[in-house]
Nucleic acid binder design. Structure first.
Length: 246
DNA sequence: AAGGTTTCCAACCGCATTCCT
DNA sequence: GAGGAATGCGGTTGGAAACCT
């Protein structure tokens, strides 16, 4: 069903402000609208979204056109599920910048702020809810630090070992990813997470993996050098992936 | 198979910031 | 510098798809 709403298009032309009232379309974009927008932006470039809305023939607001282009139609947009490296990077960057999604997105080539925000809300916040704590709480940060991140690193490492050529497969995807072994944590020190069993269950970690030496991985995840170094490294991985895809 | 529930993500909304005159 | 328009950002919502009973 098509949804239209009476609204104003407002653009400036030769220094004069022009306002025109017309029906504004809302809701899901059709293929036809997508190709109209794509064609217009390809021809005239990005920006001036109110003009795009007016002159492309689309009955959409400038805001809507911008969002559709940035989150979906832009050639650089990377589709598909978030990879392990990306998950790790998102968690790390979130610990640095909080909910500044666009800032985080800058470090994940091809990913949009919207996608990252959605990932955080649907995946990470869900885990916090299961643990009955706030995402910003100490308890949850520790759960990420001592349980989830080591597990992610372990998975990346395992995938690397299984596929020494650097070809990692996540679900249906095949990606060219190399993980620097030196960034992986040393064997476990003595740190114990008191609510261990609950957390382990929540993250889907079994007894075997709990005792394999990764969990409670000591101080490798401290806010300073490790973080910056690792963020840099993961970024390189992601940029490399992009190059390989071209 | 049907109906209910949950999950996921595209898109909207309002506010903040930047840009332009 | 002021004011208004354009753009950007983050929170939220709605609906389709997937999953469960």
């Amino acid at each position: 069903m098509e949804v239209y709403e009476r609204g104003f298009f407002s653009i400036s032309e030769s220094g004069h402000q022009i306002e025109e009232e017309m029906d504004v379309r809302k809701g899901q974009w059709t293929e036809e609208e997508d190709s109209m927008l794509k064609a217009y932006v390809t021809l005239h470039g990005e920006g001036h979204w109110n003009s795009v809305a007016r002159f492309s023939g689309l009955r959409r607001t400038g805001k809507s056109c911008r969002l559709r282009w940035l989150n979906y139609l832009r050639p650089a947009v990377r589709r598909g599920s978030i990879t392990l490296e990306e998950q790790l990077l998102i968690i790390q960057l979130h610990s640095v910048w909080g909910n500044r999604w666009s800032k985080i997105a800058e470090h994940l080539p091809g990913r949009t702020d919207n996608e990252i925000k959605n990932y955080w809300r649907t995946k990470v916040q869900k885990q916090a809810k299961k643990l009955e704590c706030d995402v910003n709480s100490r308890k949850f940060r520790d759960a990420l630090r001592y349980e989830y991140i080591p597990r992610l690193i372990e998975q990346i490492s395992r995938a690397k070992q299984e596929s020494p050529s650097g070809q990692l497969t996540y679900g249906n995807e095949t990606e060219s990813v190399q993980v620097d072994q030196s960034l992986l944590p040393e064997s476990s020190s003595e740190i114990q997470v008191t609510y261990g069993s609950t957390v382990a269950e929540t993250w889907g970690i079994d007894e075997q993996s709990n005792s394999n030496g990764w969990l409670g991985g000591g101080d490798y995840w401290m806010e300073s050098e490790w973080c910056e170094e690792n963020i840099w490294f993961l970024q390189q991985q992601l940029y490399d992936d992009e190059d390989n895809e071209i």
